[in-house]
Amino acid sequence: MSGKSAHKNCLLKVIILGDGGVGKSCLMNRFVNNHFDDHSFHTIGVEFLNKEMKIKNEMYTLQIWDTAGQERFKSLRTPFYRGSDICMLTYAVDDKSSFQSLGMWKNEFVYYSDIKDGSAFPFVVVANKVDISEEKRQVSEVEARNWCKENGDLPYIETSAKDAINVDVAFNMAVDIWSQLEAEMDKQGMSNDTIRIDPNRNGKREACCGL
């Protein structure tokens, strides 16, 4: 990617979506602060945290957005989807219905984020709470991987924010996929002479993200 040096310390907007109580805030707090609180409050409104990250020798700021999961707050949540670079679709392995909502979350994100092509967007499916005992598990890995395959071959990872399992890996994975897709788009851009939409968007993001 030729323009990478120009992207110095660019901002990547990551949005974590999923039903209430699947551990969105906990994943964010584990990743950013390496901190876990079993009884932390449910999120009201929207929060975000920043984390610096080095990817292929370039510094990036991951801006991780965490929203209230309840349907009621949809109209206040969806405006924040716009401008996202990465979307983490999250469910809890001990909560079947949170797994069944993944499709809804993906559709909602694709619809409100204004992304051109949902199939070429860096989604990662995160199965959280794998620390729970096997008998409490309601969604098997096979079942989840099948869903991912049927829904555009989405990458899948099992995490535990509580026991700090795979949380860093999940975010790194998401960024890797983002970076691959960016590189492909750049290549396409050169061969097909198509115009990439707003190539400087990352640089400008700080001023206009959100609404």
Binding site: K74, N107, Y111
Partner: peptide
Amino acid sequence: AALEKDCDQGDTTGVTPEK
């Protein structure tokens, strides 16, 4: 209203969450 981005549109395009 701008913030909402026309939520009514969402309801007609089948992305209304099941829950």
